[in-house]
């Protein structure tokens, strides 16, 4: 069939493009693709490789063992050191080289404590929380130390964050 010559040629070209295209396509599939399923298997190892940043309280205990013990025995026992000692908003330059992100002087403001202990209707009622901060100061702090009464009174003036049960020695 001479009349079909151009059509045949066109079909050959299409067949060639199809085969060549697919050969290229399969040749550039990443090597580990399909190792564990329909994805690049090497990515699992890449994802695992990253170093953890939160390393837990035990590392802190290697140097600050009394502090850690004090915390662990108190009501704040379940809270890891990092919750307060990691600067929540930015890095801190005060801590030794090993943990530049850890701060020795954490946020001591009222906000830091009230983040957990301010009363909200949404908070579980069994959780210790303050419904009225000025009143709390007026009724409790007043009894302890008259110097610290007022808007500038910090929670940490009366409560040791590592062991928050009232300790008069902290008042100095």
């Amino acid at each position: 069939m001479k009349a079909l010559r151009h059509l045949k040629r066109a079909l050959w070209i299409i067949a060639f493009l199809f085969v060549a295209g697919n050969m290229i396509r399969f040749s550039v599939v990443p090597e580990s693709f399909g190792q564990y399923g329909d994805f690049r298997g090497a990515h699992l190892a890449e994802e695992r490789a990253r170093d953890p940043i939160h390393r837990g309280s035990d590392i802190c205990g290697e140097c600050h063992d009394e502090r850690l013990e004090e915390k662990n025995n108190g009501a704040h026992g379940p809270i890891p050191c990092e919750n307060c000692h990691f600067q929540p908003y930015a890095g801190d330059e005060n801590h030794p080289e090993a943990h530049p992100e850890v701060s020795q002087s954490p946020d001591r403001s009222q906000r830091a404590c009230l983040t957990c202990h301010q009363f909200f209707p949404s908070r579980p009622s069994a959780f210790p929380q303050l419904a009225n901060f000025p009143e709390h100061i007026a009724t409790n702090a007043l009894k302890l130390n008259k110097d610290h009464v007022g808007a500038h009174t910090l929670c940490v003036h009366c409560h040791n964050p590592h062991d928050p049960k009232i300790d008069l020695k902290q008042n100095g």
């Binding site: 069939m1 001479k2 009349a3 010559r5 151009h6 059509l7 040629r9 066109a10």
Partner: peptide
């Protein structure tokens, strides 16, 4: 573009129309 073919005979037209 013509893939080296240079015919426009009635036969080719018929084939083209069918294609």
């Amino acid at each position: 573009v013509a893939l080296g073919v240079d015919e426009t005979s009635g036969e080719i037209r018929q084939a083209n129309r069918r294609a």
